[in-house]
Amino acid sequence: MTTEILLNFGLLVFLVAVALALAGMRHLFPVAMLTGLYSLLSASLFTLLNAPDVALTEAAVGAGVTTVLFLATFGLTRAREKPVKASRQVIGLVVTFATGAMLVYASLDMPHFGAKDTPVQTHPLRHEYLVAEQHEIDVPNTVTAVLASYRGYDTLGETAVVFTAGLGVLILLGRSRRGKRSNKA
């Protein structure tokens, strides 16, 4: 248990270090790679919290697809951040701190990690999903059972949305590529 706490602490320190480095950089190319690193770190944290499904999504989307999309964008635009006026930076800082303070305040209302009296533990549906699911659907992982069977149509719709979005991005990037080629010719 102590090892897990120490690991949690270490990974969070890594996260903060990467976030500060991200904020300080002006050249966007290392920023794209560091964002992927940030994703990998948070995916490790999710794994530590016993949420492998979330970790898998975070790694695939955050570290894999987003990095490649950022790089493809840099191929079309320039990879350097424009300097921002100091007054606008102050506004951004204030908004960021206000949002952060609100989130911290909201997290005070959350139950403690692993608490016994949360709705997750006391609600009658808990038996339905965690116990009866094993006989009904026979998938060892409850999250997978919910995603693929209990709300299978919802997941299908979600997949269609993500597929359409990916297709749209590919069409947009592909069109500009053709444009570039006809300019060369």
Binding site: G36, L56, A63, G64, L71, A72, G75, R177
Partner: peptide, 29 residues
């Protein structure tokens, strides 16, 4: 299984970055 997926993603990400370094885009044309 999760670790194996990460290994694959890591590989693809590095290939994409290096291609960007080499060609200035993802080497599509």
């Amino acid at each position: 299984d999760l670790a194996l997926t990460y290994a694959l993603i890591n590989f693809i990400g590095t290939i994409a970055v290096l291609k960007f370094m080499q060609y200035g885009d993802l080497g599509w044309d």
